[in-house]
């Protein structure tokens, strides 16, 4: 009885379809991660400024993404923008927008945190040496801050990959959706199929996220000072 379900996983192109679905998930995650690393570093450096006019808007932006759940953001962008602004956005594009905005907000906080956690004398001595602001960032602050921010960045990337599971809720055909389609087709012949499919997807996410979180922990330990 139990075995009949697992065999469906390997029947026909089912496995191939699931893995292609996983690729869609990873594609969204990867593009969003790249955008948010680039934008996050830029905004993070801008946010180290002491000017209140700079700090407040970015802080507000970060808090909005911290307080409102990502699923709600997905719904808001997915339903509100096309209806009110006459724009046709595919679910995948909506996902990319939301994940990039969220990732940028969180990345900028990591970058900012690691820069301001550096001892003050680093910035002061580089000024005393006569470095320009650009040189100070390029040769003193950024190299040190990089070490501090890479482990939390990897953790954030793991979180972003995990959160891509929500894409199925706005109708992106990714790994969970494909799994549901396979379940719907085979449910009558193989009653245990949903156990195996969801179990398999569970395993897929684990296989991707586990090495990443392991890697970040190792870096954290190695670079701990």
């Amino acid at each position: 009885m139990l075995n009949s379900g697992i065999s469906v996983l390997f029947e026909g192109v089912n496995m191939q379809r699931l893995l292609l679905g996983l690729l869609v998930t990873l594609r969204v995650a990867l593009i969003a991660v790249v955008i948010s690393i680039v934008m996050g570093i830029l905004i993070g450096i801008i946010r180290t400024s002491k000017n209140k006019l700079v700090q407040i808007p970015f802080r507000l932006y970060l808090e909005l993404f911290r307080i409102i759940p990502i699923l709600v953001w997905l719904f808001v962008i997915y339903y509100v923008i096309p209806a009110n602004f006459d724009l046709n956005l595919s679910a995948e594009v909506v996902a990319l927008i939301v994940f990039s905005l969220w990732g940028t907000a969180e990345m900028s906080d990591i970058v900012r945190g690691s820069i301001i956690s550096l001892p003050k004398h680093q910035a002061e001595s580089s000024k005393a040496l006569g470095l320009s602001v650009a040189q100070m960032y390029r040769y003193v602050l950024i190299p040190q801050a990089t070490k501090r921010s890479i482990p939390p960045m990897i953790n954030l990337i793991t979180r972003m990959i995990k959160t891509t599971a929500l894409l199925t809720m706005i109708g992106v055909v990714e790994v969970i959706k494909v799994g549901q389609q396979i379940i719907e087709v085979n449910n009558l012949d193989h009653p245990t199929i949903s156990f195996w499919i969801y179990g398999f997807v569970f395993l897929l996410y684990f296989v991707i996220c586990f090495p990443l979180s392991r890697f970040s922990r190792r870096l954290e330990r190695k670079w701990a000072t």
Partner: peptide, 23 residues
């Protein structure tokens, strides 16, 4: 700890809600 931290809640719930009744 590793399993719980490295899988999304949605999948955990689907597994509990749709998967477990089948066994």
């Amino acid at each position: 700890l590793e399993v719980a931290r490295n899988t999304p809640l949605l999948i955990q719930l689907f597994f509990l809600y749709y998967g477990l009744p089948k066994i």
